[in-house]
Structure formats: structure tokens, C-alpha cells
């Protein structure tokens, strides 16, 4: 008698699927709480009144057409815009409840906790080892420097490729390796957040794929925010996606946040028609 019909079949795939789902809003831990963020350069408003939360151990992607203020936005998260003459920042960027733009906040300390990787790999013209050792040395993290460097290079998925030539110049590495070296350099000082501004746009597809795989590994330890003009890259890697667009007024164009949701939602059923038009390629 086939009474065993009531015995459940091994539920492995269901459990795995559940684990892979992005956490529900209630399970998310806020790292950045951004309120009414407006950035102007002189008389030009680059982005206007952006409200957005960034969550711990998730990858948040920022997408949108050229000039919509994606890079301006991400640069506010570690005060990189301070370096732009005439930049003015209004609104609030709270990092773990602390206003990053409050009086007395040291931008160097901000950038130690919130690292950044740029579009063009920019290693120093020094050895591979010295590139990664630079941050820890400056910050006086001299204990077990070799171990720290090995960990950073391993986490950046570069160790196996460079362990036999650590004293060689960083400039001898390929573009993709240089970019992973910059990631290793950023994580060697154990930041909490990694900001990635178009990290793969200068790389070929194989190197891009390596960076994307790496991001999935990194999010176990870090919170990642990535700016990309490559929509498919956001679709592939991000848990949450923010779509920025340009609001065109009389002789003025301002970047605004149109929609921010799970990547699943943005790419299957976005709420805003402008998002739909952008992700389907009808605009931008």
C-alpha cells in the first residue's frame, strides 16, 4: 500500500531558494539613512531631495542615464564631494545614526570606514605588496602585516594569481587584476562599506564576470553600493536597485531618485513608468 505518499520529498531546493532571497524589509539592518539629499555645483543642482536607505550585507545598485547624478550620489556617502570646489550638500546622510556632514566629523575617518573603488584601476606605481600595505601602514595597523595582506588579496580573489610575485610592480598586472588589487587595497583596512563607481566599465567580459563573482563573496562581510551604467550588471549582482533619472525643467536638468526597490521588482514589474521605459530600453 503506497501510504508513503504523505512522506515529504527532500525539501533541499526550497530551503536553498529561501536562503537566496533578498531579506524582507523587516530583516534589513540600516547602514545609511539618507534624507532629502541635494547636491549643487555652483548654480547647477546635480541631484535633488534623494531619500534612500542602504542596508548591511546587501548589494545596492544605482542605475540611470548619463548625467542623472549616480556618481554624485555615491560620492556623498564617503564625502568625496568635499574635494570638488563649489560643491554644496544639503539634507542629511546618516551613517549608523551619525551625520557624516556634522561639524567635527573627520573625512579621513569616514573614508577609512567607507572605502571606494573607481572606474579606472588606479594602483600606485609600487609593488603589489606595497599597494595593499599602504593603507594599513598609514593607519598604523602594523601587526601581522603579511597576514593582513594575504587576507585582503585572498578576499579580492587575487591571491593565487599574485602570491609568487608580490614584489613585482602593480602596473605589470592586467586591467582586471589591477581592479581587484584596488579592491584588495580598499578592504585591507577593514572598512564596513565598499562604494564601487563603475568598477567594471573599463574591463572585458571575463574580468567583469570575475568582479561580479567577487562582489557576491564580498557582501558576506561588507555592505556594497555600486554605480553602474550597465543595467544588466545591476540585474545580475544587486539585491536592491535604485533608478535615478533626469528631471528636465526650464533650462535646468536635475537628477532625481525615481524608484528604489528589490532588483527582482525593478526588473520584472517596476512601479514607475519611467523605470519601465528605462529598463526596457525605450528611453535612455
Amino acid at each position: 500500500m503506497a501510504r508513503d505518499v504523505t512522506i515529504p520529498v527532500d525539501v533541499g531546493p526550497a530551503e536553498i531558494a529561501q536562503e537566496r532571497k533578498a531579506p524582507t524589509p523587516a530583516q534589513r539592518d540600516v547602514v545609511f539613512d539618507i534624507d532629502g539629499l541635494t547636491v549643487s555645483y555652483g548654480s547647477t543642482t546635480a541631484i535633488s531631495r534623494v531619500d534612500l536607505d542602504v542596508y548591511r550585507n546587501l548589494i545596492t545598485a544605482v542605475i540611470g542615464p548619463s548625467g542623472c547624478g549616480k556618481s554624485t550620489f555615491i560620492r556623498c556617502l564617503n564625502r568625496m564631494n568635499d574635494l570638488v570646489p563649489g560643491a554644496r550638500i544639503d539634507g542629511q546622510v546618516l551613517y549608523r545614526g551619525q551625520d557624516l556632514y556634522a561639524d567635527g566629523v573627520d573625512p579621513v575617518e569616514v573614508r577609512r570606514r567607507i572605502g571606494m573603488v573607481f572606474q579606472r584601476a588606479n594602483p600606485f606605481p609600487k609593488s603589489i605588496y606595497d599597494n595593499v600595505a599602504w593603507g594599513p601602514r598609514v593607519l598604523g595597523m602594523k601587526k601581522d602585516l603579511d597576514g593582513r595582506i594575504e587576507r585582503a588579496l585572498t578576499d579580492a580573489a587575487l591571491w593565487d594569481e599574485v602570491k609568487d610575485r608580490l614584489k613585482k610592480s602593480a602596473l605589470s598586472l592586467s586591467g582586471g587584476q589591477q581592479q581587484r588589487l584596488c579592491i584588495a587595497r580598499a578592504i585591507a583596512i577593514e572598512p564596513e562599506v565598499l562604494l564601487l563607481d563603475e568598477p567594471a566599465s573599463a574591463l572585458d567580459p571575463i574580468a567583469t564576470s570575475a568582479i561580479e563573482d567577487l562582489m557576491h563573496e564580498l557582501k558576506k562581510e561588507y555592505t556594497l553600493v555600486i554605480v553602474t551604467h550597465n543595467m544588466q550588471q545591476a540585474a545580475r549582482v544587486a539585491d536592491l536597485t535604485a533608478f535615478f533619472s533626469l528631471e528636465v525643467g526650464e533650462s535646468k536638468r536635475t537628477g532625481v531618485l525615481v524608484e528604489y526597490d528589490t532588483t527582482d521588482k525593478i526588473f520584472t514589474n517596476p512601479s514607475d513608468q519611467r523605470t519601465e521605459d528605462y529598463v526596457t530600453g525605450r528611453f535612455g
Binding site: 520529498v9 533541499g12 531546493p13 536553498i16 531558494a17 537566496r20 570575475a210 563573482d213 545580475r236
Partner: peptide, 19 residues
């Protein structure tokens, strides 16, 4: 290698076999 994508494909196929 697009490991996430390959994992997701493998997961779909495992669910299909389970079905």
C-alpha cells in the same frame, strides 16, 4: 564564471527533478 547564475540554474533543475 558567473557562479550565481550557474547556481540558480542548478537550483531550478533540482526543483524540477523534485517535482
Amino acid at each position: 564564471m558567473r557562479t550565481t547564475f550557474q547556481d540558480e540554474l542548478a537550483l531550478l533543475e533540482a526543483t524540477l527533478q523534485e517535482e
